[in-house]
Simulated assay, not measured.
Amino acid sequence: MNRTPGSQETQRLSKVLAQAGVASRRAADRLIQEGRVTVNGKVAVLGQKVTPGIDDIRVDNKPVTQNQKRVYIMLHKPQGYLSTCQDPFGRPIVLSLIPEVKERVFPVGRLDFDSEGLLLLTNDGHLAYLLTHPKHEVIKEYVVEVSGKRNNRKIKELLSGIIIDGKKVYVDYAKFLDSSDGSVRLLIGVHEGQKHLVKRLCKAVGYEVKRLIRTRIGPLALFGLEKGKWRHLTRKEVQALYKAARG
């Protein structure tokens, strides 16, 4: 394609895909690795730079369009749904819970198949990056039901840091809630983003997770929204998320 020198700056392809609402930056990198992204008819590579508005960028042979309306959705995810945009095995995905939404959106971070609670979906790649990158320290809060008995030593272990994948990971806070029928409930806040992190932290201190519910992301709390239901965020809520991520 013909270019006008200096007309537009090049950007990383994964960033452009995120800004266009295709996927988060990490998920965009996976799309590139899987060979599903092309630039000007050629299969893209990781780290490639492109010029938005000039280069012909496609995902699964569908053109990537810029400047679409920004959408911010809060979903109360039930158990039994994948936090992905598609699944090759045909398992239920969270997008099937928002059929009324016509814009292309993607989940911000993930909740495991058997986990439930607050999940954000958006086509704002920049906000998704701010909320999920650990350096921005946006706390995600979980109510975790575990097997066993209350043991304050386990709380101290969590607060003192647990080695996960060779790195010491700290919870932002942890405390016991009520308990019954041989189960204990904990409230745990973390800003790290490793896969299955809360379950792995609990396992490291000897607790088996029976149920995990995400109740908060930064200033946004899961109140008054029934399981499986969703709503658009208000402008103030979006602004509060940006403020929390930027400190």
Rank of each mutant, 00 (worst) to 15 (best):
P5V: 05
Q8Y: 15
T10K: 15
T10M: 08
L13D: 01
V16K: 02
L17E: 06
A20R: 02
V22N: 01
A23N: 05
D29T: 04
R30S: 12
R30W: 03
R30Y: 08
G35W: 02
T38L: 04
V43F: 04
T51I: 13
D55Q: 01
D60T: 01
D60M: 01
N61V: 03
P63Y: 02
N67S: 07
H76A: 00
G80L: 01
S83G: 03
T84W: 02
C85Q: 13
C85P: 00
C85G: 07
S96Q: 13
V105Q: 02
G109H: 00
R110G: 06
L111N: 03
S115G: 05
G117P: 06
L121H: 01
L130T: 12
H133M: 14
P134N: 07
L158E: 14
L158F: 10
G161M: 14
I163C: 12
I163G: 08
D165W: 07
V169K: 13
Y170K: 12
Y173M: 15
L177V: 08
L177P: 09
D178R: 15
S179M: 10
G182A: 06
R185T: 12
H191L: 09
K195F: 14
L197F: 08
C202V: 13
K203L: 15
K203I: 10
K203T: 12
A204E: 09
V209N: 05
L212Q: 06
R216F: 08
R216T: 10
G218N: 09
P219T: 06
L222D: 05
G228L: 09
R231N: 12
H232V: 10
T234Y: 09
R235L: 13
V238K: 07
Q239M: 10
L241P: 05
L241E: 10
Y242P: 14
A244S: 12
R246D: 07
G247E: 10
G247F: 07
